[in-house]
Amino acid sequence: MSWHNQKKILLAVAVILIALLSFAIGVSFGTSYDNGSLINVLFPALGVVGNWIAGIGAIAAVFTSLWLADNQRKLNSEEIDVKFNLVVSPPDMTSRLMVSAVSKGNRPANVKSLSIYSANSTVAMWVKDLDPQSSHLPIVMPYGHDASFLLVRGIESYINSYVKEHCDGKYSSLRIQLNTTLGSFFVPFSSEILKHLRNAGANKSS
Rank of each mutant, 00 (worst) to 15 (best):
N35G: 09
N35Y: 13
G36S: 01
G36E: 01
G36N: 01
G36C: 02
G36T: 00
G36P: 15
G36R: 01
G36A: 00
G36W: 02
S37I: 15
S37K: 15
S37G: 13
L38E: 11
L38Q: 12
L38R: 13
I39R: 10
I39F: 11
I39S: 15
I39K: 12
N40K: 14
N40M: 11
N40H: 12
N40G: 11
N40T: 09
N40I: 11
V41F: 14
V41I: 12
V41T: 14
V41E: 13
V41S: 12
V41P: 15
L42G: 08
L42E: 04
L42A: 10
L42V: 09
L42T: 09
L42H: 09
F43V: 13
F43C: 05
F43Q: 05
P44K: 00
P44N: 04
P44E: 00
P44Y: 00
A45C: 00
L46V: 06
L46Y: 04
L46F: 08
L46G: 01
G47S: 01
G47F: 06
V48G: 07
V48A: 05
V48P: 14
V49D: 07
V49K: 14
V49W: 13
V49Q: 12
V49H: 13
G50T: 05
G50A: 05
G50K: 08
G50S: 06
G50Q: 07
G50C: 05
N51F: 14
N51A: 15
W52E: 01
W52P: 09
W52D: 01
W52Y: 03
W52G: 03
I53N: 03
I53Q: 06
A54K: 01
A54V: 08
A54Q: 04
A54P: 07
G55N: 11
G55F: 02
G55H: 10
G55R: 14
G55T: 06
I56F: 00
I56P: 10
I56C: 03
G57V: 02
G57W: 04
G57A: 09
A58V: 02
A58M: 05
I59M: 07
I59G: 06
I59D: 09
A60S: 12
A60D: 10
A60G: 12
A60P: 12
A60V: 10
A61M: 05
A61V: 00
V62H: 07
V62W: 08
V62E: 06
V62Q: 04
V62D: 03
F63C: 08
F63L: 11
T64P: 12
T64Q: 15
T64D: 13
